[in-house]
Design a protein around this nucleic acid. Structure first.
Lengths: 160, 160
DNA sequence: CAGAAATAGTTGTCTCTACAAGTTTATCGG
DNA sequence: CCGATAAACTTGTAGAGACAACTATTTCTG
């Protein structure tokens, strides 16, 4: 079985996507760490909870929404709980499960942090693109996610 | 100063890009770790060296090409050197600088690893897109990188 | 040409993530 | 209804990146 190498167009597209994946997380993390002492993943977790009914979600649901493994989420939620931004309690319907709920302090943190985060996303991504390119990016993302995550558990909720 | 929130189209595009950035690195790392005991970043470093003159680059140049900080690259190169895939030696023209050179074993590793890696990139990214979308992705990547990395140090060399 | 500043890299520490293993509870098959 | 399997976490450990501090050269400036 012989390899189908990438042609020039494909290679350029891939190298640029790889570069974005290498650089963008650092930019997002830096802004959030500096202004709110949160990683981008921390923020995403808090943001997903802030939009959930009762600002509460089961850990498994939250893991799916944030594209994280359960062990990773468990560590992150423990740290956020230690900081008073989230609280955990057993799920009444299923004794195996744990619910995570945003505290008042966590809600305030999201409110305070969202504007700066959205500004960063605008500055480095959205405002760099034409309206047509924004739509193209949504379609391209959809196509790639269909391969990465065929079950499409990924959050479609807002993030700010 | 009032926040310009994301509208629906912008939100969808951003959430999908964020999901791709969360999931794709894991997929690439898993395949390379399983088949070659390399991270994607390790592979990218070896690939950049494999295309350099004499298969040699100064650390600073290599760091710029791979979008890495110098401390990060230094750790990675040390580990690859311990495995015999790279060797380091002082740069003759500038005593401050270090050159990194791919060894024969490193070259063989790149040759052996490239087909599986390219297949993974095809499967999860390129082959998920139409030819028009591949070109759109290249343009979108370019636009975002212009904001992330205005000096455009990023590699435009091939990667396989 | 001396001192200051910048450049190139290495090293140490701390945090975060992946992976593996363990615990508790629910569900399924006979 | 009992044992086996699966599900939902939690915890421990080890590896990789971020950041800061340090060393060794080179370049710039008065």
């Amino acid at each position: 079985m012989t390899t189908r190498w990438l042609d020039d167009r494909e290679r350029v597209a891939w190298v640029r996507l790889a570069a974005v994946m290498e650089l963008l997380p650092g930019v997002l993390d830096s802004q959030l760490r500096r202004d709110a002492e949160l990683t981008h993943f921390d923020y995403f977790v808090l943001a997903m909870l802030s939009e959930a009914p009762e600002r509460t979600r089961r850990m498994t649901h939250l893991a799916a929404q944030t594209n994280a493994t359960l062990p990773r989420l468990s560590h992150v939620v423990r740290r956020l709980e230690e900081r008073g931004l989230i609280e955990r309690f057993p799920c009444p319907e299923d004794a195996r499960a744990t619910n995570a709920r945003l505290t008042a302090a966590g809600w305030a943190k999201v409110q305070a942090t969202a504007p700066g985060h959205v500004a960063t996303v605008r500055e480095h991504v959205i405002d760099a693109l034409s309206p047509a390119q924004v739509d193209q990016l949504a379609e391209i993302g959809e196509a790639i996610l269909a391969r990465l995550d065929p079950e499409r558990r990924v959050a479609e909720g807002s993030e700010g």
